[in-house]
Amino acid sequence: MQGLAGAAACGTVLASSGRAGPVAAPPYRPQFFDAAEWAFLVAACDRLIPADASGPGAVALDVPRFIDRQMDTPYAHGAQWYMSGPFMAGPDNLGYQLPYAPRELYRHGIAGMNAHAATRHGRPFAALSAALQDDLLRAAERGSLVFGDVPSATFFEQLLANVMEGAFSDPIHGGNTGMGGWAMLGFPGARADFMDWVDQYGVHYPLGSVSISGERA
């Protein structure tokens, strides 16, 4: 049921951006993720933000493409994080202390998730039912899975953060296709001028979103 709903919403969004028919996954060739990793990423995105009555899901919004493109940025190489050793474990509230950049967290984390799926259910994550996928994602979120020295919660938080970014950032970064994420929120994007709306109290803003590159929803 979830899969069908996802495909339907996906079709709606793709149609509005002028492309053809419903597809299961976007026609995009990942540059960073290999086939097994990509299958995990698409499946996990579909569970984290499923298509439903509230609006499009992460797959239709091309969140996997966003994350793959992000992997080629300085951020994903850890260039914005202090990555000098020694690396010591400490209390959670003192923050991230692993020597891994986002690219490495994805490599470790996806392998770990697929290994857990294989051990428990004999299949990779992407081949599990939605209910089993949700169970595994919740276990990762709680931190109850172990992937070598990457706590599953660390990987989960990395993934969830990037999924949110992909669904709701400007489409210039490869996600939020057709500004579908903004449309479901009612966020006007790059309009950035409310001079004549600031004191229109309690009323829905009438204009649709615009993006940096000038798309209009």
Binding site: R47, L137, V163, E165, A167, F168, W182, M184, L185
Partner: peptide, 25 residues
Amino acid sequence: AIAAAYSGGPPGTPRWGSAWKAGMI
């Protein structure tokens, strides 16, 4: 929008999935 997504819904709402979407919006 990204900040809204992170903030999510009222306390007790899951942080992802359909319940998160509805609560967050």
